Simulated scan of single mutants.
Amino acid sequence: MVTKTASPPVQVATIGFTNKTAESFFDLLKRAHVRTVLDVRLNNTSQLAGFAKKQDLPFFLENLCNAAYVELPELAPEPSLLKRYRAKELTWKDYEAAYLDLIARRRVESSLDADMFRSACLLCSEHLPHHCHRRSALEYLNAHWNGKLQISHLT
């Protein structure tokens, strides 16, 4: 008789780069054994991103953390939605509901594979995950993937 064993949970983290030095940012990734950074930012080329600019991050990740860089625009908000939230036209609750509706319409749970999140870390700018779409995205996926993801937030 063959016994089927449950697959181990997919360890995935989130991180924001604001309020962190480059040293603390890359140390957090190394200590968490992150192998891939999944960039879910809408604006990842701004000078305000400093060491986390899309142009520079792959080099830093490879050389400092032995990690890969992948853009994941499917999990980024739409520009108009983010603009309305930043202009305080939407509360966090309304923004999050609209964002969850957006990724549901994109059917990200069907187009993405849980294994790509293994030893990965979702990157955004917000320091803490409480009011950030990276947390909302993982919770949404986890609900649709029967709790496969074990989520931690690197702060």
Rank of each mutant, 00 (worst) to 15 (best):
Y69M: 07
Q47D: 01
T91Y: 10
K54E: 09
H127T: 11
S24T: 04
D27Y: 05
V34C: 03
P73T: 07
A98F: 11
A22H: 15
F51V: 00
N43P: 14
A67H: 06
L122T: 00
P8T: 04
Y69D: 15
I15F: 00
V34F: 15
L100R: 00
K20W: 03
H133I: 04
S80F: 15
V10C: 02
K83R: 12
F60T: 02
F51I: 00
A68K: 13
T91K: 15
S136D: 09
A104T: 10
P79L: 15
K20C: 07
P129E: 02
A120R: 00
K30S: 05
R84E: 12
F59Q: 02
T91Q: 07
S80D: 10
A114C: 10
T5H: 14
C65K: 03
K93Q: 13
L112C: 00
N43W: 11
E23R: 09
A52K: 02
A76C: 15
L72F: 13
A32E: 00
D94N: 14
R118A: 08
K148E: 06
K20N: 10
T45A: 08
S24P: 13
S152E: 06
V40E: 02
T3M: 13
Y85V: 00
L81M: 12
N63H: 14
A76P: 09
M116L: 07
V12N: 05
S24M: 12
S125N: 14
P8A: 11
N44I: 01
V2R: 06
A49D: 12
N44S: 11
D101Y: 07
W145Q: 00
C121H: 03
E62P: 02
L57K: 13
C121P: 08
E62H: 08
W145K: 00
H131M: 06
H33S: 09
G16Y: 08
A97P: 10
G147E: 01
S110L: 15
N66A: 02
W92I: 09
L102Q: 11
P8W: 13
F26R: 01
A98H: 10
D39R: 00
E89C: 13
